[in-house]
Amino acid sequence: MRRLVLAASLCAALADSALAEETMSNHPYVGLWVTADGRIRHELLPNGRYDEARGSRRSAYQGRYVVTGNHIDYWDDTGFTADGDFIDGVLHHAGMILYRQQ
């Protein structure tokens, strides 16, 4: 019985994750955000993860993110946290301004 409950819980979690990713794949903020000089690049992935590149350093930081309205919260895999706001189609994050890359 215990295994059955555990398996059912795992299936439910996977279904929730797949639904969340499908929902986020259509979210207007998912995609690549870049500073004007191209040095900092945030890729917001549809699975709720992000990958940040800095200069020639790919995947300098990785973690998860949550968007609530026009606000974004980041949790880096190392434990660092940050946030930002989308204002008029521009991401303002930690003193940086990032623009949507098409």
Rank of each mutant, 00 (worst) to 15 (best):
E22W: 14
W75L: 14
W75I: 03
H93M: 04
G89R: 05
A60Q: 09
H42M: 12
I40W: 13
M24T: 02
D77P: 02
V67H: 01
L91Y: 04
Y65W: 10
L45Y: 02
L44T: 02
N70S: 14
W33A: 02
T23N: 07
V67F: 06
L32D: 05
L19S: 07
G79R: 10
A12R: 00
D37Y: 12
G95A: 05
L44I: 00
S56Y: 10
A36S: 14
H93V: 12
R39K: 11
F80G: 07
A82M: 12
L14W: 11
R49E: 12
I72R: 03
R58A: 15
A7S: 13
T68H: 06
Y74A: 03
G69Q: 03
V30Q: 11
D73Y: 04
R39I: 11
L4F: 08
L44V: 00
E52N: 12
A20C: 05
A12E: 04
I72L: 01
G38S: 10
H42R: 03
T23W: 00
L91F: 12
L10D: 04
E22Y: 14
I72D: 00
S9W: 09
P28I: 09
D85A: 06
S9T: 11
G31N: 00
L98Y: 03
L91S: 02
D85V: 03
Y61Q: 14
R49L: 07
G31A: 00
L45Q: 15
A8R: 04
G38E: 10
R64K: 09
S9D: 13
A8Q: 09
A60C: 04
W75E: 12
G69V: 07
P46Q: 04
L91Q: 02
H42E: 13
Y65P: 07
L45F: 05
D51R: 13
I40D: 02
V5P: 02
D37H: 11
P46R: 01
A82C: 07
A36D: 12
A12H: 01
H92L: 08
V5L: 13
Y74L: 15
N70T: 11
L32M: 13
S17C: 08
Y65H: 07
V30P: 06
L32C: 10
H71L: 10
D83V: 01
A36I: 06
R54V: 14
L4S: 12
N26D: 15
G95M: 06
R57K: 03
V90C: 10
E43R: 13
R39H: 13
I87C: 04
M24L: 15
R39V: 13
E21G: 05
H27S: 09
L98E: 00
F86A: 02
G55P: 01
G55A: 08
D85Q: 08
V5Y: 05
D73T: 08
H42Q: 06
L10E: 06
L6C: 10
W33M: 04
V66A: 08
F86K: 00
I87A: 06
S59N: 15
H93A: 05
G63L: 00
F86L: 11
Q62P: 06
E22S: 15
V30F: 13
M96V: 03
P28M: 08
